[in-house]
């Protein structure tokens, strides 16, 4: 379709929906063949996942999330939205939690990645996992690995003095109050609504640490 045809159709769509019109995708650019030169020249990258070195040859488009799920079959890390809007894909990279869906695998050369599988196992739960069990901090379980990775990282962030939106005094060291935990966990959506229980599970673990 010509550019001009689209323009007419768009106007007709905007002005009057009664007009029968053709409408193509109004994307950035029209469809075009993928250049052959750019066929997935496998890119090499290595990083450590749960203490184990992993070397990949990857399509450059693969996210850290899909590298974990589809290549290493570490499916504990979940894909909830694939756009950084839910937190289900949270993993800990070099000690900091991130959304693995918004990170290309290639960006992680040499990094140390910890996923839910690296925190604990059914036989040997991490204290945070055990606290989630005790307080029923999950229902369907889909957001749970992300919540737990985030929860572990949040307690560490509080310990390191990373500030938050609800801190009254920016220059004081934060403490794991209910308001602090809830604000810091807000990047992890739970549609089943286990939030109240998750905050209590985290408080248990935070208290045990002190």
């Amino acid at each position: 379709m010509e550019e001009g045809e689209y323009e007419i159709s768009r106007r007709s769509v905007l002005v009057s929906s009664a007009v029968t019109a053709t409408l193509a995708a109004a994307g950035v650019s029209e469809a075009q063949p993928l250049p052959k030169a750019l066929a997935p020249a496998d890119h090499k990258v290595s990083f450590v996942v749960n203490g184990k070195g992993q070397a990949f040859s990857l399509d450059p488009r693969i996210t850290l999330l899909d590298a974990l799920r589809e290549h290493l079959h570490l499916t504990g890390t979940k894909k909830g939205c694939d756009h950084g809007q839910c937190g289900a894909c949270t993993v800990i990279v070099n000690g900091e939690r991130i959304n693995s869906c918004l990170s290309l695998a290639l960006q992680h050369e040499g990094d140390e990645v910890t996923t839910i599988e690296g925190l604990g196992t059914p036989e040997k739960l991490h204290p945070m996992q055990a606290a989630f069990v005790k307080h029923d901090g999950y229902q369907c379980g889909y957001c749970t690995p992300g919540q737990i990775c985030s929860a572990v990282a949040v307690l560490d962030e509080i310990k390191r003095g990373v500030p938050s939106h609800v801190q009254a005094e920016l220059t004081r060291a934060p403490t794991p109050t209910n308001a602090e935990l809830r604000e810091r966990m807000s990047g992890n959506i739970c549609r089943c609504g286990a939030y109240s229980n998750i905050a209590e599970a985290m408080a248990d673990v935070a208290e045990a640490r002190v």
Binding site: T121, K134, Y138, P145
Partner: peptide
Amino acid sequence: LDRYEARLKTTGTATYAYEYK
């Protein structure tokens, strides 16, 4: 009672639809 599947869901070892390999 703690959930029957508690240890699977909290360790990422409960398998959801897209995850069977």
